[in-house]
Nucleic acid binder design. Structure first.
Lengths: 329, 329
DNA sequence: ACGGTTCAGTGAACCGCTTCACTAGAGGGC
DNA sequence: GCCCTCTAGTGAAGCGGTTCACTGAACCGT
């Protein structure tokens, strides 16, 4: 028998005030100290708590922040999502976490859903940052982009991927690698994403022989792809666009009895906590995940509170050398 | 300029019907085929889509399922959460993912929040399954418990932890281990949780010398705890109550130049995908995570749709032997 | 004593949808 | 032709808050 909750009208009745006064009082607005106390007492007495849904309908605000992830199969993105939702909780906001599964169409649909849910803002790690519908979204709700830049957002935490790619490829080149397989995340129907562009540009500049392949983030899928790549004309190094994919290369290498870095060097991207535990440790490009979380939370909070101008935070990567890349034999 | 959305009244106007008729028509209720078509056409024309908030206020249903995780620092729980949210999305439901961070008080607060958000149901991985407030929650919203059993739920996917513990400890014992350190997740103020009880009971039965220590799920925290445990009177084996914690033991062992399983055997619990990639691979107790996800999604969907009697699914663990446990030297 | 500000609080109109109770009209049985 | 049942649809009252426009009283300086 779900005992009915107290409503604002009952509190009003109990205190002899109008519902409006109660509403104001509970939010610390426009009323005398004394009334506020009385209202609070009555509310506590009746176990009253404002219904978030009714509040949302009337005020248009929900206190929720949408978190639209590119692909939660990626362990690093999982960490990011967990970090952000925790950060948000500390600011008394809830994260509504959605997963686009690397699919731009789904991304669009979920973005709209989020807007319809009246989230106060959304943090997005775009699969397709160039999509047109972002503009439509940005004008009805504050958006903070993580990773790639989107036009019209209220704030962004962009990764200097150009720099990241340079770091990785120069490192490989310095150790003598020329034929390099590059594994980028599977993303249906967005052929010209920024990452690929940087890779081909950098490869050209450095005179590297690159072979691009797409791979899923999940271990089984990445392993299968890596298996194929390593079985062909073997590259001397593999550069993976996420540590999760690199884990697949480790698995495939083990299957094929190839040693890392003896037979093939492996380079990751993102620095997930597990990367340091593998043997050899995965050499990767490290982004300051805590910094990203903090920046994103700060930006979206400010934007959702109606605050502030557009802010852009650029993250710089660092090379985290462990043992998975060696001089080409 | 956020162009205002079309409302149901405008659609009514456009079709010459009453709002009520439109409401029914769009949900395929009570109206003639012909009208339904007309309404649908007009809605499409105006780009109308029902406002979820208003709908929730009026009907009391949101289409959302709350997912209250025990501690998302645990990688395995992350996988579980991702799997469940994906499974729900396929059923046109959204998951509102919240993280109790292993804290019963926070669990209680978040559970209430979820109920106030009018979720249609919630999936819970309880930190404190014995807490009294679950009863209150269960009577106002369908709850599905994962892991430990909670009284009054609409369904449960319980793990046979007794069996899991037996599997682990018998395996260790068979290989000659007697002094075993057990690392269980940090959970403030719930001293008598089922897991510990099973461990002490089993240890007694098998004549093992157990030392219980609590450890956080995150790598840094787990590593610190493991460091302490391994530096003391060294146990011949460490049994961790989650693979995440076991990862910390790997890290600590590396720091201390202890070899696994040469100097110390390590046993995990849960089987996270990364466990197979470590060297040596982590011997662990495997739960069928896909099965758990499917069962939980099925149960909560049924319950949220008002369906069915109470269902209970019991998960049986299997021992996944890899290389981290060896005969005691 | 008087107009002008504040301050505390009120009433009622929403927010946009659902749902309950009800009705006009068509169709059926005899 | 009469009564009854169904069907498609209507009107209005919510759901439980917020907010806008307004009022009455107290207080101010002069």
């Amino acid at each position: 028998m779900p005992r009915k909750r107290a409503t604002i009208r009952e509190v009003a009745q109990a205190t002899g005030l109008s519902p409006a006064a109660v509403s104001y009082a509970l939010r610390g607005l426009q009323v005398s100290e004394e009334t506020m106390e009385r209202v609070r007492a009555a509310a506590a007495e009746l176990g009253y708590e404002a219904d978030p849904i009714a509040r949302a309908l009337a005020s248009g605000r929900t206190g929720m922040i949408g978190l639209l992830c590119g692909s939660l199969e990626d362990l690093w993105q999982q960490s990011l999502a967990v970090g952000i939702s925790r950060g948000l909780l500390e600011k008394d906001r809830y994260a509504l976490i959605l997963d686009a599964v690397g699919d731009p169409a789904r991304e669009r649909a979920l973005g709209r859903q989020l807007r319809d849910q009246r989230v106060d803002g959304m943090i997005v790690q775009p699969v397709d940052p160039a999509a047109a519908f972002w503009a439509e979204l940005c004008e009805s709700v504050p958006v903070v982009a993580i990773g790639d830049s989107i036009a019209g957002t209220a704030g962004e935490v962009v990764f200097d991927n150009r720099r990241g790619v340079t770091l990785a490829l120069e490192h490989l080149r310095a150790l003598g690698h020329r034929r390099i397989a590059v594994l980028t995340p599977t993303r249906p129907s967005t052929p010209d994403r920024p990452a690929d562009v940087h890779v081909t540009a950098e490869a050209e500049r450095l005179g590297l022989d690159i072979e691009l392949t797409t791979a899923p983030h999940d271990l089984a899928g990445a392993t299968a792809t890596a298996h194929r790549v390593l079985s062909g004309e073997q590259p001397s190094a593999v550069f993976c666009f996420s540590d999760s994919i690199a884990y697949g290369v480790y698995a495939a290498a083990a299957d094929l009895r190839l040693s890392i870095p003896g037979d093939v060097s492996v380079m990751g991207y993102d620095d997930h906590p597990m990367s340091g535990l593998l043997s050899p440790g995965l050499t990767t490009v490290d982004w300051d995940i805590d910094g990203i979380v903090r920046a994103a939370v700060r930006l979206i909070s400010a934007a959702a509170d109606g605050g502030a101008r557009r802010r852009r935070v650029v993250q710089k990567p660092t090379l985290r050398e462990r043992g998975s890349v060696a001089q080409r034999s």
